[in-house]
Write a protein that binds this DNA or RNA. Structure first.
Lengths: 99, 99
DNA sequence: CAATTATGTAAGATTTTATTACATAAAAAT
DNA sequence: ATTTTTATGTAATAAAATCTTACATAATTG
């Protein structure tokens, strides 16, 4: 896993990096748009990927999109990815296509 | 600047990532081996580069090296880099060598 | 042997984060 | 047109994380 995906950033810094309030960041978690890790003590930890995702979310919100819609879009995107990967995996298994 | 160089990580996480105690991490700063940023409130912020550097330091310490020695080695390394860059810059200015 | 290096630990203050609750404007649903 | 839901702010209080300073000490160096 690359640095981009390591959950090491606190919510205050995420707020600074994204321009969102910590209230908003926690709320988007409540709506299941992001999934920070937690320390033993319960402090949230985010990755740069999370930060990027939050910036996307902020833009979509700004465009008048609702969080339930954003979630659906994320699901569609992720489903697409899974399908692609399955297909690629199958092709690879059957035909030994590289990479 | 890439994610690797963004100073966003707290000392506790750095401790976890490096296996060093927070005491050690602060001490290496005192010896001018690393240079975290600070928040307004005074909390230290480190980058993944800092984490890598600390891991190197930990190895050198383990090999019985002293912090003043480590610092000298870092300086030699950085001097080398500066020299290289100056030479490359001059070559570029004179001959227009690309990249 | 005296000085320095490297680290642990403790105390107390400050900063940062967490949870819960109440408030409310705007948008969506009925 | 109401009622409900969404999205966010703010306040209170508790807990977690960090900061600085100081004292202790073993190991190393001069």
């Amino acid at each position: 896993m690359s640095y981009k995906d390591r959950k090491v950033i606190n919510i205050g810094m995420v707020s600074e990096l994204t321009g969102l309030s910590v209230r908003q960041i926690r709320y988007y978690e409540e709506r299941k748009l992001i999934f920070p890790n937690r320390t033993e003590g319960g402090t949230r930890k985010y990755s740069f990927s999370d930060v990027e995702k939050l910036i996307d979310i902020a833009n979509q919100i700004e465009d008048g999109m609702q969080s339930s819609e954003i979630k659906k879009m994320q699901k569609r995107k992720s489903d697409r990815k899974v399908r692609d990967e399955m297909i690629r995996g199958q092709l690879n298994a059957v035909f030994g296509i590289r990479k």
